[in-house]
């Protein structure tokens, strides 16, 4: 069952309610004209005090800080810190493989991914950041309206019929020096992931790889004669003794996870694996810490 946008948003907001506003870390940013709450550790336009500098020809008389100037003979001007908003781009995998849930009480991977993404977006918007989806038209924006747009876009993707079997991360429209969050099960082709990450790293985008898996995909609790099919039945594998395949399957799964982790490390991203039968709070906590400004 795909959740409605409003409940999705309220759930996401509920999840984010107990965490302080998220402040993204900016390592080095290109000059930008838009102001935000993140200090750039350099003087510039902003609200927070940075340093005092002597006044030069051309500063308006109003800008002189008289208290500081009274201590000495020169006139000083207060410099503010350069604050700029951060952009966080989300990519939530809505391919057919994500529409799978193994039991009725386990949510689908796509739903869990959407919840996590939107929760993070809520916190970011509260902290004044700009959020966006990689496949959404229009630039990433800040504000609560953007959250509605995000939710609507995630919902609309749910109803697309001809999605592919497995999703590939979309790194085409990532603004430079933004942050990215890729939430998927990463069962698709690793080459696609690699190329996306490379592209993102070229632009200087740092981010998070969050892998969402179903518990049966992790544990492989199958016995006997089985025919495994992908969600659109394009791939199938027949086994006469499924129990005997378990070890090999888990080996392969571990290998893929390792590949993902090492790939993320190599481009400076972070990787986490979440299972849908767990509560989303630990995963979100991790996501929050991952996007938190390093202290």
């Amino acid at each position: 069952m795909t959740p409605q946008p409003i409940p999705l948003r309220s759930r996401a907001e509920g999840l984010a309610a107990h965490l302080p506003p998220l402040l993204a870390e900016a390592q080095h940013l290109a000059a930008s004209v838009i102001l935000g709450e993140h200090g750039r550790r350099r003087p510039g336009l902003g609200d927070a005090f940075w340093q005092y500098r002597p006044a030069i020809q051309g500063d308006s008389a109003r800008a002189i800080d008289w208290r500081r100037s009274a201590r000495s003979d020169q006139h000083f001007v207060q410099e503010k810190e350069w604050q700029a908003t951060q952009t966080v781009m989300f990519w939530v995998d809505r391919a057919m493989s994500m529409q799978f849930s193994s039991a009725a009480d386990v949510p689908r991977k796509a739903d869990r991914a959407a919840v996590l993404a939107l929760a993070a977006a809520v916190l970011l918007v509260r902290g004044g950041e700009r959020v966006g989806l990689t496949n959404m038209s229009g630039a990433p924006k800040a504000g609560r309206l953007q959250l509605d747009r995000l939710a609507r876009a995630l919902e609309a993707e749910n109803h697309a019929e001809d999605s592919a079997e497995y999703g590939t991360p979309d790194a085409n429209l990532l603004p430079a020096h933004a942050r990215a969050v890729f939430i998927s099960d990463f069962m698709g082709d690793m080459a696609g992931v690699r190329s996306a990450l490379t592209k993102a790293a070229d632009r200087g985008v740092k981010g998070v790889l969050m892998q969402v898996l179903d518990p049966v995909e992790e544990a492989f609790p199958f016995q006997g004669r089985m025919i495994f099919e992908s969600m659109k039945a394009t791939l199938r594998h027949e086994s006469r003794m499924a129990g005997a395949l378990r070890d090999q399957y888990q080996e392969r799964l571990g290998a893929r996870k390792d590949a993902l982790w090492s790939l993320a490390q190599s481009v400076g991203w972070q990787y986490h694996c979440h299972h849908t039968d767990d509560t989303p709070a630990p995963a979100f906590l991790w996501l929050y810490h991952a996007l938190e400004r390093p202290r």
Partner: peptide, 22 residues
């Protein structure tokens, strides 16, 4: 032999190529 059960399993990509031991 008895009829197999069909299951939807997205991670089947990881199973492709595996052979039954026995």
């Amino acid at each position: 032999p008895p009829a197999p059960i069909r299951r939807r399993f997205p991670a089947v990509v990881l199973l492709l190529g595996l052979k039954d031991e026995t």
